[in-house]
Design a binder for these strands. Structure first.
Length: 313
DNA sequence: AAGTTACACAACCGCGGACCT
DNA sequence: CAGGTCCGCGGTTGTGTAACT
């Protein structure tokens, strides 16, 4: 029944690999391949290592055509876009970057890229937002009219914003999202979500209460709302975001939370609608707002990154 | 120069699904 | 079908080293 045990954990070596071990493993695999059995491999290769350890060493370090060293801007962009779309599924992300391993990308994200993004966003707080150059890259809606008169659908599977009061549905996954001017925005209720992982929603001014800021916590600025609700007037519409086809745990939690707020009698004034995979957007719209400049009166036009959207006045 | 801290990256651990008997 | 292991994945930890005090 079953297979033989993986390895005798008491007798296997752990820790950093020596050059001798590397050459033994490399030589063996060059001659024999992995044989589809990592567990048996170390014994055959004369290594006192666990099969798992051998596999990891080979895949992440010894395998031919592995790229080491700095990531290019293109690679950064791909990682950011994919992380925004599918989350921390490093193996899938790695598949899009030839020569890079999931471990490499994961380390790079955790140690550099995430910090780089946070640094980019850091000045975006209540005190300094007015001076912040990032604003030029954000969609700026200064008047309720702007989002009352536009309706954008990311092309995902969720279609709740057919309601007459639903005004803006915008996917912003992987993108610089929406900048909402609090002075006007405080007169309505809203529920907002920026999308699954990008640089989502911003408020010029803080607006009443926000709850749920799951994604936002790693940005650490009060004026940044990355997935959150606002309910500003009791007798007004509750606002809602539903993430269709939630793709990861955070999105699922978020979707569930959003669902609990939904009130059919008072459909949302503002809703941000997701596509197929995540809260607020999917790959079909992952660059919708990215690096775009908007004035107050500009329409919400998807850029080339959006392949599935529709636009309705 | 020595000690401490921060950082980058390699390696390990544990889990869940696939697979085997 | 049940019970067990294997494999691949993502999160976490460990280690070496550079930077700082």
């Amino acid at each position: 029944m079953g297979r033989a045990p993986c390895c005798d954990k008491a007798s296997v070596k752990k820790g950093p690999w020596s050059p001798e071990e590397d050459s033994k493993l490399r030589e063996y695999i060059h001659k024999n391949g992995t044989g589809g059995n990592w567990i048996a491999l170390p014994h055959k290769a004369g290594l006192k290592r666990c099969g798992k350890s051998c596999r990891l060493r080979w895949l992440n370090y010894l395998r031919p055509n592995i790229k080491h060293g700095d990531f290019s801007d293109d690679e950064d962009r791909i990682i950011c876009d994919l992380f925004a779309t599918i989350g921390s599924r490093w193996s899938i992300i790695a598949a899009q970057l030839p020569g890079r391993t999931d471990n490499d990308i994961k380390n790079y994200w955790n140690t550099k890229l995430k910090k780089k993004l946070m640094h980019d966003l850091q000045p975006y707080n209540h005190q300094s937002s007015k001076k912040n150059q990032h604003r030029r890259k954000l969609l700026h809606l200064s008047s309720p009219h702007d989002y009352y008169s536009h309706h954008y659908s990311s092309g995902g599977s969720y279609g709740s914003n057919n309601s007459s009061t639903s005004v803006l549905s915008a996917a912003a996954a992987g993108s610089r999202g929406l900048l909402l001017n609090g002075e006007h925005h405080t007169t309505i209720t809203s529920c907002l979500d920026s999308g699954g992982g990008g640089l989502g929603l911003y408020f010029d001014e803080l607006c009443a209460t926000t709850t749920s800021s799951v994604h936002g916590q790693w940005l650490g600025t009060e004026s940044f709302v990355f997935g959150g609700f606002q309910q500003l007037l009791e007798d007004h519409h509750k606002s809602l975001l539903l993430a269709a086809g939630a793709a990861n745990q955070m999105d699922q939690q978020y979707s569930a939370a959003a669902s609990s707020y939904y009130d059919e009698a008072k459909p949302p004034l503002v809703s941000l609608m997701g596509g197929g995979n995540g809260a607020g957007g999917t790959s079909t719209s992952s660059s919708f707002f990215y690096d775009s400049s908007y004035s107050n009166n500009e329409r919400l036009e998807p850029d080339n990154g959006d392949k599935g959207g529709s636009y309705i006045d």
